[in-house]
Design a protein around this nucleic acid. Structure first.
Lengths: 79, 79, 79, 79
DNA sequence: AGTCGTAACTG
DNA sequence: CAGTTACGACT
C-alpha cells in the first residue's frame, strides 16, 4: 500500500519536472528565435552573446575584468 | 542617424533576450526546487534525472537502447 | 623591470598550458578515432560511451544504481 | 563463436578508449596544476583562460571580434 | 572545483 | 543532419 502511494508521489514529482522542462524548452526556443531574427538583421550573434554575458556582470566586476584582460594581453603582445 | 536607429534596434533585441533569460532562469529554479523537495522525501535525484531522460526518449528507442546496453554489458562481464 | 619579469612569467605559464592543451587535443582525437573505427565495425557508440561510464563506477555503486533505477522505472511503468 | 570474437573485439575497443581517457585525464590534471601554480603566483586564472582562448584565434579573427565587440558595447553604453 | 548534460555551430 | 565544441548547471 505504501508502495503504491510512493509510486504516485514519485510520479507526481516527475510530472511536475516534465511540465517545467517543457516550459523551459519553449523559452529556449523563443531566445533562439530572437537571435535568428537579429542575425537576419545583420547582427553577429556570437558578439551579441558576449554582450549579454557582459551585461549580466556587475559593473565593478566588468571594469576589473576589462582592466586585467588588457594588462595580460599587453604582457603577451596580444594588443 | 541610422547608427542611432541601429543602436536602438540592437538594444531592443538584447533586452528581449534578457527578459526571456530571466524567465528561463525562474523556471530552472523551480525545477531545482522540485528536485530538492523530492530529495527531502528520500528520493535519489540522480536516478530521477536518469528517469526523466528515459521518459523523454521514444519507447522504441528506449527498448532498443536497453537491449543493446544489456548485450554490451554481458559481453564485458558488467552484468 | 619587475613588470618585464612578470610578463615573462605569465608567458611561460601560458605556453605550458598551450603545450598541454595540444597534447590533450591529440588524445581526444585518438579517442574519437577509436569510436569511429568501432562504429565502422557496427557498434553503437552511444552505448559504448554508456558502458565506459559504467565501468568507471565502482561495482558497488553500479549495483546500487541499477537496483534503484529498476525500482523507479517499475514505479513509473517504464519497464 | 562469432559472438565470442565480437565480445573480444568490443572489449579491445573499450580498453583502448579507457587507456586513452586515462592519459587524457593525466594531462587535464597537469593543466589544472599549472593554473593552480599561476594562481599561487597571484594571477587571475579566469583571465588567463580568456587569454588562452584569444591566442587560439587567428589574429584577423581576433581583431575583427575586438572591433565588433567595441561597437556593440558603445551602442549599449557598456563602455 | 570538477563533472555532466545541454545547446550552438560547423562540415 | 550529425558530430564537435562551448557553455552553464548540478554535485
Amino acid at each position: 500500500m505504501s508502495d503504491i502511494i510512493q509510486a504516485d508521489q514519485l510520479r507526481l514529482f516527475i510530472e511536475r519536472i516534465e511540465r517545467l522542462e517543457e516550459e523551459k524548452k519553449g523559452i529556449s526556443d523563443d531566445i533562439r528565435d530572437v537571435y535568428s531574427e537579429s542575425k537576419g538583421q545583420g547582427y553577429d550573434t556570437t558578439i551579441m552573446r558576449a554582450v549579454v554575458r557582459l551585461r549580466r556582470m556587475e559593473k565593478g566586476d566588468r571594469d576589473e575584468m576589462d582592466a586585467l584582460l588588457e594588462t595580460y594581453r599587453d604582457a603577451l603582445g596580444l594588443a
